[in-house]
Design a binder for these strands. Structure first.
Lengths: 206, 206
DNA sequence: GACATTCCATACGCTAGAGTATGGAATCAC
DNA sequence: GTGATTCCATACTCTAGCGTATGGAATGTC
């Protein structure tokens, strides 16, 4: 058969040729939806309007794709976020911004949770460990900058990070029990009060 | 072949015949170790010193075993715990005891986390939702009994529960980053201060 | 102690999905 | 435009693990 939709447009868009990046991106989406287990080569191929043949030209095997997707995740959802937050001068504002980003509507939380679900996977484990420690260190420093004592800052960081992780886990376990709409913001306020040391540190003051 | 170890003891203990309960218990252990995916019939059979033949006599299929294991979990790790906590009169003591149980060394947290990992599984989803809402409701009431206003009590419950879930997720993601030994207790103290409304509510006062 | 019933082992069929082999289309180099 | 290179589709093989079929052991029953 000649390539589907190569001449007259079928449902699929007249696609260009694929590269490793396309596969890695699609893989990360799949992981976000159903974890490593949902990363099925022929499934991705269909989404991309291709077949296994393409995949096995770009990648040695499935593990190599997983690695590529995890690299991408580590970069986009941790390093780049941290980099962006460095730009915020005021420690309180930086922390507040971090909370807003973390609990916001981006798909990051879902990927996080999906990867936590595959924490036992030998490919996932080291990346997950690295990312978790990196984030915790950043959080610890953030609380330190706020004036919290060294030891206490670590506990604040742990509490904040587990609140974040737990929130997205809860959303999967019982979406109806998760605060939505105005309640979401109220809950975030509540969290900020509980998790930050001194004052209320209101979100978007004014 | 005659049954292994039926006369002279080999490595395996001279086992009695198996019942549904044995399979369900083994299944729950397997789930705790690796989630639903780790629940492999022939694997469990080997652990129990039996074969598939036995399993398919007691159960229609794998799904039926999963159901049985989930039932067991819901009963042991939620209903029975709640029942036990009802016995504690003082609201503050009850909440403190709950925290101690939750963050204690029982394997419950690991099973919780494993099932959260399979939240998308159609067999797991309804049980998980039920259990989560049940626990949240109990927590909400617990905070209410402590004198927290209705709406606020819900947020307290959410924060406490996500802290619990997040803690065990963190332990899987980066065990080395999780507080251990004396730090574990210090962190628990920190959490109690952050998550409970009024006073410090010390663990095991005195 | 023979028969029924309960329980289980062995040997098989079946499917999903990873990975391979190979020919051919697209694109580039000149 | 023709040869080389890059990219991809099709048609396989192979394995893990679910489920089934069937005979036989263990245990109860009278």
């Amino acid at each position: 058969m000649t390539r589907a939709g190569s001449r007259l447009g079928t449902a699929a868009p007249p696609r260009r040729r694929l590269g490793r990046g396309d596969w890695a991106a699609a893989a990360l989406v799949a992981i976000g939806e159903g974890g490593i287990g949902a990363l099925v080569i022929e499934g991705l191929a269909e989404r991309l309007g291709a077949t296994k043949g393409s995949f096995y030209w770009h990648f040695k095997d499935r593990d190599e794709l997983i690695d590529a997707a995890l690299d991408r995740w580590e970069q986009e959802e941790t390093e780049e976020v941290i980099e962006r937050l460095r730009a915020v001068e005021d420690p309180a504002a930086r922390l507040r911004r971090l909370f807003e980003l973390a609990f916001g509507d981006h798909p990051g939380g879902d990927i996080d949770v999906a990867l936590l679900a595959d924490a036992a996977n030998p490919l996932v484990a080291p990346v997950l460990r690295r990312v978790t420690e990196r984030r915790l260190d950043f959080l610890t420093t953030a609380f330190s900058d706020l004036g919290v004592a060294e030891e206490s800052a670590r506990y604040h960081a742990l509490a904040a990070y587990t609140a974040y992780v737990g929130y997205f886990e809860l959303r999967r376990a019982a979406p109806s029990a998760t605060p939505t709409g105005p309640h979401a913001r109220e809950y975030l306020d509540h969290l900020l009060r509980a998790l930050t040391p001194a004052g209320p540190l209101p979100v978007r003051p004014g």
